[in-house]
Design a binder for these strands. Structure first.
Lengths: 196, 196
DNA sequence: GGTATTTCCTGATTTAAGTCAAAGTTAAGT
DNA sequence: ACTTAACTTTGACTTAAATCAGGAAATACC
Protein backbone atom coordinates (compact mmCIF):
# COMPACT_ATOMS: atom_id res chain seq x y z
CA UNK A 1 0.00 0.00 0.00
CA UNK A 2 1.45 3.36 -1.01
CA UNK A 3 1.75 6.27 1.38
CA UNK A 4 -1.19 7.97 -0.25
CA UNK A 5 -3.35 4.89 -0.03
CA UNK A 6 -2.66 4.75 3.70
CA UNK A 7 -3.81 8.34 3.97
CA UNK A 8 -6.91 7.82 1.81
CA UNK A 9 -7.90 4.87 3.96
CA UNK A 10 -7.44 6.92 7.07
CA UNK A 11 -9.42 9.95 5.98
CA UNK A 12 -12.26 7.84 4.60
CA UNK A 13 -12.51 5.85 7.80
CA UNK A 14 -12.39 8.90 10.03
CA UNK A 15 -14.69 11.15 8.02
CA UNK A 16 -17.14 8.48 6.90
CA UNK A 17 -16.93 9.99 3.42
CA UNK A 18 -15.64 8.26 0.27
CA UNK A 19 -13.09 10.30 -1.65
CA UNK A 20 -13.64 11.01 -5.35
CA UNK A 21 -10.83 10.52 -7.85
CA UNK A 22 -10.62 14.29 -8.07
CA UNK A 23 -10.17 14.58 -4.32
CA UNK A 24 -7.40 12.03 -4.44
CA UNK A 25 -5.60 13.93 -7.16
CA UNK A 26 -5.78 17.13 -5.15
CA UNK A 27 -4.19 15.35 -2.21
CA UNK A 28 -1.52 13.73 -4.37
CA UNK A 29 -0.66 17.10 -5.86
CA UNK A 30 -0.29 18.90 -2.53
CA UNK A 31 0.66 16.42 0.17
CA UNK A 32 4.40 16.19 -0.04
CA UNK A 33 5.99 12.85 0.91
CA UNK A 34 8.87 13.45 3.25
CA UNK A 35 11.28 11.22 5.13
CA UNK A 36 13.00 11.98 8.40
CA UNK A 37 15.69 9.79 9.91
CA UNK A 38 15.68 8.89 13.58
CA UNK A 39 16.85 11.88 15.67
CA UNK A 40 15.96 14.41 12.99
CA UNK A 41 13.70 17.28 14.00
CA UNK A 42 10.34 18.02 12.48
CA UNK A 43 10.05 21.21 14.53
CA UNK A 44 12.52 23.13 16.65
CA UNK A 45 11.76 25.28 19.66
CA UNK A 46 11.43 28.91 18.62
CA UNK A 47 10.34 28.15 15.07
CA UNK A 48 6.80 28.68 13.86
CA UNK A 49 5.06 25.45 12.97
CA UNK A 50 4.08 26.09 9.35
CA UNK A 51 3.43 22.50 8.35
CA UNK A 52 1.59 19.51 9.63
CA UNK A 53 2.73 16.03 8.76
CA UNK A 54 0.60 12.91 8.59
CA UNK A 55 2.58 9.94 9.90
CA UNK A 56 2.50 7.03 7.45
CA UNK A 57 5.25 5.15 9.24
CA UNK A 58 7.41 5.72 12.30
CA UNK A 59 7.06 7.67 15.52
CA UNK A 60 8.01 10.97 17.14
CA UNK A 61 8.04 12.80 20.44
CA UNK A 62 6.92 16.35 21.20
CA UNK A 63 8.84 17.74 24.13
CA UNK A 64 10.05 20.86 25.85
CA UNK A 65 13.27 21.46 27.73
CA UNK A 66 13.01 23.28 31.06
CA UNK A 67 15.49 25.70 32.62
CA UNK A 68 17.36 22.86 34.32
CA UNK A 69 17.77 21.12 30.98
CA UNK A 70 15.24 18.42 31.73
CA UNK A 71 13.16 17.12 28.89
CA UNK A 72 9.37 16.81 29.28
CA UNK A 73 7.50 14.75 26.71
CA UNK A 74 4.06 16.12 25.97
CA UNK A 75 3.09 13.83 23.17
CA UNK A 76 4.14 10.54 21.65
CA UNK A 77 2.93 10.12 18.09
CA UNK A 78 2.70 7.04 15.87
CA UNK A 79 1.11 6.07 12.56
CA UNK A 80 -2.16 7.80 11.66
CA UNK A 81 -1.43 10.85 13.76
CA UNK A 82 -0.59 14.34 12.66
CA UNK A 83 2.63 15.99 13.72
CA UNK A 84 2.32 19.63 14.68
CA UNK A 85 2.30 22.08 17.54
CA UNK A 86 -1.24 23.26 17.16
CA UNK A 87 -0.78 26.38 19.25
CA UNK A 88 2.06 27.58 17.04
CA UNK A 89 0.28 26.37 13.93
CA UNK A 90 -2.98 28.19 14.59
CA UNK A 91 -1.57 31.33 16.15
CA UNK A 92 1.64 31.54 14.07
CA UNK A 93 3.64 32.06 17.24
CA UNK A 94 7.10 30.58 17.92
CA UNK A 95 6.79 27.11 19.38
CA UNK A 96 7.95 26.15 22.87
CA UNK A 97 8.30 22.56 21.72
CA UNK A 98 10.57 20.31 19.74
CA UNK A 99 9.30 17.46 17.63
CA UNK A 100 11.89 14.77 17.00
CA UNK A 101 11.72 11.48 15.13
CA UNK A 102 12.12 8.45 17.42
CA UNK A 103 12.08 6.02 14.52
CA UNK A 104 12.63 6.76 10.83
CA UNK A 105 9.56 8.70 9.72
CA UNK A 106 7.56 8.70 6.53
CA UNK A 107 5.30 11.70 6.41
CA UNK A 108 2.86 13.41 4.12
CA UNK A 109 3.52 17.06 4.72
CA UNK A 110 1.22 19.98 4.03
CA UNK A 111 1.44 23.70 4.64
CA UNK A 112 -0.98 25.78 6.62
CA UNK A 113 -2.13 27.61 3.48
CA UNK A 114 -2.72 24.35 1.64
CA UNK A 115 -4.81 23.01 4.49
CA UNK A 116 -7.15 25.95 3.94
CA UNK A 117 -7.46 24.89 0.31
CA UNK A 118 -8.39 21.37 1.38
CA UNK A 119 -11.03 22.79 3.67
CA UNK A 120 -12.48 24.81 0.84
CA UNK A 121 -12.64 22.00 -1.67
CA UNK A 122 -12.82 18.64 0.10
CA UNK A 123 -15.70 18.03 2.54
CA UNK A 124 -14.16 14.79 3.77
CA UNK A 125 -11.20 16.83 5.01
CA UNK A 126 -13.48 19.04 7.08
CA UNK A 127 -15.23 16.03 8.58
CA UNK A 128 -11.87 14.43 9.34
CA UNK A 129 -10.63 17.54 11.09
CA UNK A 130 -13.79 17.65 13.18
CA UNK A 131 -13.26 14.13 14.44
CA UNK A 132 -9.57 14.72 15.10
CA UNK A 133 -10.25 17.84 17.14
CA UNK A 134 -12.96 16.06 19.10
CA UNK A 135 -10.70 13.13 19.89
CA UNK A 136 -7.84 15.41 20.73
CA UNK A 137 -9.98 17.52 23.06
CA UNK A 138 -11.26 14.42 24.84
CA UNK A 139 -7.83 12.83 25.12
CA UNK A 140 -6.34 16.00 26.56
CA UNK A 141 -9.22 16.40 28.96
CA UNK A 142 -8.62 12.89 30.25
CA UNK A 143 -4.94 13.59 30.56
CA UNK A 144 -5.62 16.70 32.60
CA UNK A 145 -7.87 14.66 34.86
CA UNK A 146 -5.19 12.01 35.31
CA UNK A 147 -2.49 14.58 35.93
CA UNK A 148 -4.35 16.55 38.60
CA UNK A 149 -6.15 13.74 40.39
CA UNK A 150 -4.42 10.38 39.88
CA UNK A 151 -1.44 8.96 41.74
CA UNK A 152 1.65 7.96 39.78
CA UNK A 153 0.53 4.34 39.87
CA UNK A 154 -2.95 5.14 38.60
CA UNK A 155 -1.49 7.19 35.77
CA UNK A 156 0.62 4.22 34.72
CA UNK A 157 -2.37 1.88 34.82
CA UNK A 158 -4.33 4.40 32.80
CA UNK A 159 -1.63 4.33 30.15
CA UNK A 160 -1.68 0.53 30.06
CA UNK A 161 -5.40 0.50 29.37
CA UNK A 162 -5.47 3.42 26.93
CA UNK A 163 -2.17 3.13 25.08
CA UNK A 164 -0.84 -0.39 25.65
CA UNK A 165 1.20 -0.31 22.44
CA UNK A 166 3.26 2.60 23.79
CA UNK A 167 4.93 0.16 26.18
CA UNK A 168 6.07 -2.04 23.34
CA UNK A 169 7.23 0.83 21.29
CA UNK A 170 8.85 3.44 23.49
CA UNK A 171 11.59 3.17 26.12
CA UNK A 172 10.42 3.42 29.72
CA UNK A 173 12.27 6.64 30.44
CA UNK A 174 10.17 8.32 27.75
CA UNK A 175 6.97 6.79 29.09
CA UNK A 176 7.98 8.13 32.49
CA UNK A 177 8.48 11.60 31.09
CA UNK A 178 5.16 11.41 29.26
CA UNK A 179 3.47 10.53 32.56
CA UNK A 180 5.28 13.30 34.39
CA UNK A 181 7.36 10.86 36.49
CA UNK A 182 11.04 10.24 36.99
CA UNK A 183 12.34 7.04 35.34
CA UNK A 184 13.25 5.66 38.75
CA UNK A 185 9.73 6.09 40.04
CA UNK A 186 8.25 4.33 37.03
CA UNK A 187 10.71 1.49 37.44
CA UNK A 188 9.61 1.03 41.06
CA UNK A 189 5.94 1.18 40.18
CA UNK A 190 6.41 -1.57 37.63
CA UNK A 191 8.30 -3.68 40.13
CA UNK A 192 5.57 -3.34 42.75
CA UNK A 193 2.80 -3.99 40.26
CA UNK A 194 4.06 -7.55 39.83
CA UNK A 195 3.25 -8.60 43.41
CA UNK A 196 -0.33 -7.81 44.37
CA UNK B 1 -28.54 43.77 26.74
CA UNK B 2 -30.74 40.68 26.52
CA UNK B 3 -29.39 37.17 26.87
CA UNK B 4 -29.67 36.65 23.15
CA UNK B 5 -27.85 39.85 22.36
CA UNK B 6 -24.96 38.69 24.56
CA UNK B 7 -24.85 35.48 22.58
CA UNK B 8 -25.09 37.21 19.18
CA UNK B 9 -22.21 39.45 20.15
CA UNK B 10 -20.16 36.49 21.22
CA UNK B 11 -20.71 34.39 18.12
CA UNK B 12 -20.10 37.30 15.77
CA UNK B 13 -16.88 38.18 17.53
CA UNK B 14 -15.61 34.62 17.63
CA UNK B 15 -16.63 33.58 14.12
CA UNK B 16 -15.88 36.86 12.40
CA UNK B 17 -19.22 36.53 10.64
CA UNK B 18 -22.22 38.86 10.95
CA UNK B 19 -25.49 37.09 11.68
CA UNK B 20 -28.48 37.69 9.44
CA UNK B 21 -31.91 38.41 10.92
CA UNK B 22 -32.91 34.92 9.83
CA UNK B 23 -29.97 33.40 11.72
CA UNK B 24 -30.96 35.31 14.83
CA UNK B 25 -34.51 34.06 14.61
CA UNK B 26 -33.33 30.48 14.32
CA UNK B 27 -31.26 30.93 17.47
CA UNK B 28 -34.10 32.62 19.32
CA UNK B 29 -36.42 29.79 18.40
CA UNK B 30 -34.11 27.01 19.56
CA UNK B 31 -31.80 28.30 22.26
CA UNK B 32 -33.74 27.86 25.44
CA UNK B 33 -33.10 30.39 28.24
CA UNK B 34 -32.62 28.56 31.50
CA UNK B 35 -31.79 29.59 35.03
CA UNK B 36 -29.99 27.55 37.64
CA UNK B 37 -29.61 28.64 41.24
CA UNK B 38 -26.30 28.35 43.07
CA UNK B 39 -25.66 24.68 44.04
CA UNK B 40 -27.98 23.33 41.34
CA UNK B 41 -26.57 20.76 38.94
CA UNK B 42 -26.35 21.18 35.20
CA UNK B 43 -25.07 17.61 34.81
CA UNK B 44 -24.83 14.70 37.22
CA UNK B 45 -22.30 11.91 37.17
CA UNK B 46 -23.71 8.90 35.32
CA UNK B 47 -26.04 10.92 33.14
CA UNK B 48 -25.46 11.44 29.45
CA UNK B 49 -24.75 15.06 28.58
CA UNK B 50 -27.48 15.77 26.05
CA UNK B 51 -27.33 19.54 26.19
CA UNK B 52 -24.78 22.28 26.09
CA UNK B 53 -25.41 25.59 27.77
CA UNK B 54 -23.93 28.95 26.86
CA UNK B 55 -23.23 30.94 30.01
CA UNK B 56 -24.72 34.42 29.82
CA UNK B 57 -24.19 35.09 33.50
CA UNK B 58 -22.75 33.21 36.45
CA UNK B 59 -20.19 30.46 36.92
CA UNK B 60 -19.91 26.71 37.38
CA UNK B 61 -17.47 23.96 38.22
CA UNK B 62 -16.95 20.63 36.48
CA UNK B 63 -15.64 18.05 38.91
CA UNK B 64 -15.37 14.38 39.68
CA UNK B 65 -15.45 12.64 43.03
CA UNK B 66 -12.82 9.96 43.63
CA UNK B 67 -13.17 6.73 45.65
CA UNK B 68 -12.09 8.49 48.84
CA UNK B 69 -14.80 11.09 48.35
CA UNK B 70 -12.41 13.85 47.34
CA UNK B 71 -13.57 16.34 44.78
CA UNK B 72 -11.35 17.22 41.82
CA UNK B 73 -12.23 20.29 39.77
CA UNK B 74 -11.45 19.88 36.10
CA UNK B 75 -12.91 23.07 34.82
CA UNK B 76 -14.10 26.42 36.10
CA UNK B 77 -16.46 28.15 33.70
CA UNK B 78 -17.66 31.73 33.52
CA UNK B 79 -19.52 34.00 31.09
CA UNK B 80 -19.01 33.28 27.38
CA UNK B 81 -18.16 29.63 27.95
CA UNK B 82 -20.16 26.56 27.11
CA UNK B 83 -21.15 24.09 29.78
CA UNK B 84 -20.87 20.46 28.78
CA UNK B 85 -18.89 17.28 29.22
CA UNK B 86 -17.70 16.98 25.66
CA UNK B 87 -16.72 13.34 25.96
CA UNK B 88 -20.21 12.37 27.08
CA UNK B 89 -21.78 14.78 24.63
CA UNK B 90 -19.95 13.50 21.56
CA UNK B 91 -19.90 9.81 22.44
CA UNK B 92 -23.27 9.68 24.23
CA UNK B 93 -21.66 7.83 27.13
CA UNK B 94 -22.50 8.36 30.83
CA UNK B 95 -20.45 11.19 32.24
CA UNK B 96 -17.87 10.78 35.00
CA UNK B 97 -18.35 14.43 35.92
CA UNK B 98 -20.71 16.71 37.73
CA UNK B 99 -21.35 20.28 36.66
CA UNK B 100 -22.64 22.49 39.43
CA UNK B 101 -23.53 26.19 39.54
CA UNK B 102 -21.20 28.21 41.78
CA UNK B 103 -23.22 31.39 41.29
CA UNK B 104 -26.74 31.74 39.96
CA UNK B 105 -26.57 30.85 36.29
CA UNK B 106 -28.31 32.22 33.23
CA UNK B 107 -27.88 29.87 30.31
CA UNK B 108 -28.94 29.45 26.74
CA UNK B 109 -29.44 25.75 26.41
CA UNK B 110 -29.45 23.67 23.27
CA UNK B 111 -29.74 19.95 22.55
CA UNK B 112 -27.26 17.85 20.66
CA UNK B 113 -29.74 17.36 17.82
CA UNK B 114 -30.39 21.08 17.55
CA UNK B 115 -26.69 21.83 17.36
CA UNK B 116 -26.57 19.68 14.24
CA UNK B 117 -29.32 21.85 12.78
CA UNK B 118 -27.31 24.97 13.51
CA UNK B 119 -24.32 23.42 11.80
CA UNK B 120 -26.40 22.66 8.74
CA UNK B 121 -27.94 26.11 8.42
CA UNK B 122 -25.69 28.72 10.05
CA UNK B 123 -22.09 29.07 8.81
CA UNK B 124 -21.18 31.41 11.66
CA UNK B 125 -21.98 28.59 14.07
CA UNK B 126 -19.52 26.29 12.32
CA UNK B 127 -16.81 28.96 12.39
CA UNK B 128 -17.51 29.60 16.06
CA UNK B 129 -17.25 25.92 16.89
CA UNK B 130 -13.92 25.73 15.05
CA UNK B 131 -12.43 28.51 17.11
CA UNK B 132 -13.79 27.08 20.34
CA UNK B 133 -12.32 23.67 19.67
CA UNK B 134 -8.99 25.19 18.75
CA UNK B 135 -8.87 27.27 21.90
CA UNK B 136 -9.99 24.36 23.99
CA UNK B 137 -7.35 22.08 22.49
CA UNK B 138 -4.63 24.63 23.08
CA UNK B 139 -5.77 25.42 26.62
CA UNK B 140 -5.85 21.74 27.52
CA UNK B 141 -2.47 21.16 25.97
CA UNK B 142 -1.00 23.92 28.10
CA UNK B 143 -2.68 22.50 31.15
CA UNK B 144 -1.19 19.08 30.48
CA UNK B 145 2.22 20.69 30.13
CA UNK B 146 1.79 22.52 33.42
CA UNK B 147 0.53 19.43 35.21
CA UNK B 148 3.35 17.12 34.13
CA UNK B 149 6.27 19.52 34.21
CA UNK B 150 5.61 22.46 36.50
CA UNK B 151 6.02 22.67 40.27
CA UNK B 152 3.02 23.64 42.39
CA UNK B 153 4.31 27.18 42.58
CA UNK B 154 4.80 27.49 38.83
CA UNK B 155 1.28 26.19 38.26
CA UNK B 156 -0.09 28.87 40.54
CA UNK B 157 1.90 31.58 38.76
CA UNK B 158 0.66 30.22 35.46
CA UNK B 159 -2.90 30.61 36.68
CA UNK B 160 -2.23 34.18 37.78
CA UNK B 161 -1.01 35.13 34.32
CA UNK B 162 -3.60 33.19 32.32
CA UNK B 163 -6.73 33.44 34.45
CA UNK B 164 -6.23 36.28 36.93
CA UNK B 165 -9.99 36.83 37.31
CA UNK B 166 -10.36 33.31 38.73
CA UNK B 167 -8.70 34.52 41.92
CA UNK B 168 -11.25 37.25 42.39
CA UNK B 169 -14.12 34.99 41.61
CA UNK B 170 -13.51 31.56 43.12
CA UNK B 171 -12.54 30.51 46.64
CA UNK B 172 -8.97 29.36 47.05
CA UNK B 173 -9.86 25.79 47.94
CA UNK B 174 -11.44 25.47 44.50
CA UNK B 175 -8.46 27.07 42.81
CA UNK B 176 -6.30 24.56 44.67
CA UNK B 177 -8.40 21.67 43.44
CA UNK B 178 -8.31 23.04 39.90
CA UNK B 179 -4.50 23.15 40.10
CA UNK B 180 -4.32 19.64 41.56
CA UNK B 181 -3.11 20.87 44.96
CA UNK B 182 -4.35 20.63 48.52
CA UNK B 183 -5.77 23.89 49.90
CA UNK B 184 -3.04 23.95 52.54
CA UNK B 185 -0.31 23.81 49.94
CA UNK B 186 -1.84 26.66 47.97
CA UNK B 187 -2.17 28.73 51.11
CA UNK B 188 1.54 28.24 51.85
CA UNK B 189 2.57 29.05 48.30
CA UNK B 190 0.67 32.31 48.50
CA UNK B 191 2.27 33.15 51.83
CA UNK B 192 5.78 32.54 50.49
CA UNK B 193 5.12 34.43 47.28
CA UNK B 194 4.84 37.65 49.28
CA UNK B 195 8.50 37.69 50.42
CA UNK B 196 10.94 37.37 47.56
C1' DG C 1 -28.20 40.70 63.48
C1' DG C 2 -26.73 36.65 65.03
C1' DT C 3 -25.78 31.75 64.25
C1' DA C 4 -24.05 28.33 61.13
C1' DT C 5 -21.31 27.03 57.53
C1' DT C 6 -17.57 27.73 54.59
C1' DT C 7 -13.28 29.21 53.83
C1' DC C 8 -8.56 30.20 55.10
C1' DC C 9 -4.37 29.87 57.70
C1' DT C 10 -0.72 27.68 60.62
C1' DG C 11 2.01 24.10 62.79
C1' DA C 12 3.39 19.12 63.29
C1' DT C 13 3.90 14.91 60.97
C1' DT C 14 3.75 11.54 57.19
C1' DT C 15 4.20 10.02 52.61
C1' DA C 16 4.90 9.93 47.70
C1' DA C 17 7.92 10.94 44.53
C1' DG C 18 12.42 13.15 43.19
C1' DT C 19 17.42 13.19 43.29
C1' DC C 20 21.98 11.27 43.41
C1' DA C 21 25.03 7.65 42.53
C1' DA C 22 26.46 3.38 40.73
C1' DA C 23 25.93 -1.00 38.53
C1' DG C 24 23.75 -4.00 35.22
C1' DT C 25 21.47 -4.58 30.90
C1' DT C 26 20.19 -3.84 26.35
C1' DA C 27 20.48 -1.75 22.01
C1' DA C 28 22.85 1.13 18.26
C1' DG C 29 26.32 2.30 15.08
C1' DT C 30 30.23 1.28 12.41
C1' DA D 1 31.51 -8.41 16.30
C1' DC D 2 32.76 -5.08 19.16
C1' DT D 3 32.59 -0.76 21.23
C1' DT D 4 29.92 3.02 22.63
C1' DA D 5 25.89 4.86 23.93
C1' DA D 6 21.28 4.45 25.74
C1' DC D 7 18.27 2.48 28.90
C1' DT D 8 16.88 0.18 33.29
C1' DT D 9 17.24 -1.11 37.94
C1' DT D 10 18.51 -0.69 42.83
C1' DG D 11 19.74 1.49 47.19
C1' DA D 12 20.36 5.59 50.23
C1' DC D 13 18.84 10.00 50.95
C1' DT D 14 16.21 14.42 50.28
C1' DT D 15 12.35 17.16 49.32
C1' DA D 16 7.80 18.69 47.83
C1' DA D 17 3.44 18.24 48.82
C1' DA D 18 -0.35 15.67 51.40
C1' DT D 19 -2.56 14.77 55.58
C1' DC D 20 -4.11 15.66 60.19
C1' DA D 21 -5.69 18.81 63.54
C1' DG D 22 -6.89 23.24 65.46
C1' DG D 23 -8.35 27.74 65.34
C1' DA D 24 -9.41 32.36 63.04
C1' DA D 25 -11.82 34.86 59.63
C1' DA D 26 -15.20 35.61 56.44
C1' DT D 27 -19.87 34.62 54.21
C1' DA D 28 -24.27 32.84 53.87
C1' DC D 29 -28.70 32.60 55.37
C1' DC D 30 -32.84 32.78 58.20
Amino acid sequence: MSNFEVFFDYIQKLSGVILSEDDKHVFMAHLKPKKLRRRQYFLQEGDVCKYTGFIVKGSAKTFRVDEKGNEHILKLSVEDWWLADFESYYHLTPSRYNIEALEDLELLQVSNAQVEQFFASIPAFIAMQEVIKQNYAIANQNRVEAAISYTAEERYEDLITNYPHFLQRFPLNMIASYLGLSPETLSRIRKNALKP
